[in-house]
């Protein structure tokens, strides 16, 4: 303890720029996590820049009316085959991710109180949320590919007839594509969908892995012995970033 105090005193006598002290008053790990998230945000931004340019420069093509209206494609819901339920499934996915964000931040809060049991419990909830989201995304991809989406092509050029057909169907009514409803559309549509949601899904997957590791460390008492639960905060920063990216994926891919 004497050693601790003398180190503390040595630091106190250091001027701010002499090192040994964080300029932002956060720990090394947390600062590095923020810097990583900033660089990751740039990565996702480049994808969104690419998407935005393609999206709005492909409004009209010679053979189809426009870039497909996402509600006309993402209108499926598990166990409700053939029903026209646009946007419902993605909204449920958004809800799952928001909920898992809350359980994550509750784990962080429990960590501040050094309550091991609560941290472990909330981490389990968060991991379940993450796995649920990934399962939803797998189902979404499966349905999309089943409907004919490919990386190198787009069969979702929806014709005038197709849109008239879609508009005649109400929310929750039975819907099936008819001949002449669809033709080839702007190629980047499906490719960008796969790349951006795939990139995001991979981040969710890494987040789940990180959360599982952190959960095991919690249960084994690593943080209890360390005296603080800052690792939960760092994992939480990453997890919330994944949620943040989803906010923009949801906005740009499904709403606009």
């Amino acid at each position: 303890m004497a050693n601790h105090t003398s180190t503390q005193a040595a630091f106190e006598n250091q001027p701010t720029w002499a090192g040994g002290r964080s300029p932002f008053n956060v720990s090394y790990g947390k600062l590095m996590m923020w810097i990583f998230l900033l660089s990751d945000a740039f990565t996702f931004s480049t994808l969104l820049v690419q998407y935005g340019t393609q999206r709005f420069s492909n409004v009209v093509t010679p053979i189809t009316t426009k870039w497909p209206d996402p509600a006309s494609i993402f209108n499926h819901f598990p166990f409700m085959h053939g029903l026209h339920l646009p946007l419902l499934f993605v909204s449920v996915m958004t809800f799952i991710l928001i909920l898992s964000s809350v359980t994550m931040v509750l784990a962080v809060e429990a960590g501040h109180r050094k309550s091991k049991a609560e941290v472990a419990r909330y981490m389990v909830y968060t991991i379940i949320g993450g796995i649920a989201f990934l399962s939803c995304q797998a189902w979404e991809w499966y349905t999309f590919i089943h409907e004919g989406a490919r990386l190198d092509g787009n069969t979702f050029g929806i014709t005038k007839q197709g849109y008239d057909h879609l508009n005649s169907v109400g929310f929750g009514d039975h819907f099936e594509w008819a001949d002449g409803d669809r033709t080839f559309g702007p190629v980047p549509f499906a490719a960008l969908f796969f790349i951006v949601t795939g990139f995001h899904g991979f981040h969710v997957f890494s987040g789940v892995v990180i959360n599982v590791v952190v959960y095991i460390m919690t249960v084994r008492g690593v943080f209890e012995r360390r005296g603080h639960y800052e690792m939960i905060e760092k994992a939480g920063l990453y997890w919330h970033f994944v949620d943040l990216v989803w906010v923009f994926v949801f906005t740009f891919f499904y709403l606009i």
Binding site: H4, T7, Q8, F11, E12, N13, Q14, T16, G20, R21, S22, P23, N25, V26, S27, Y28, I98, L99, S101, V102, V105, L106, E109, G111, H112, R113, G227, H228, Y229, E230
Partner: peptide, 28 residues
């Protein structure tokens, strides 16, 4: 500005306090 001794890289134990869960649920 940092106060002297805010961060000690060797014997670092973060200063944590719970702000409660009210703000978190509100945000949710």
């Amino acid at each position: 500005y940092n106060k002297p001794g805010d961060y000690d890289a060797i014997n670092y134990i973060p200063h944590t306090e719970s702000h409660g869960t009210k703000e978190l649920w509100k945000t949710f």
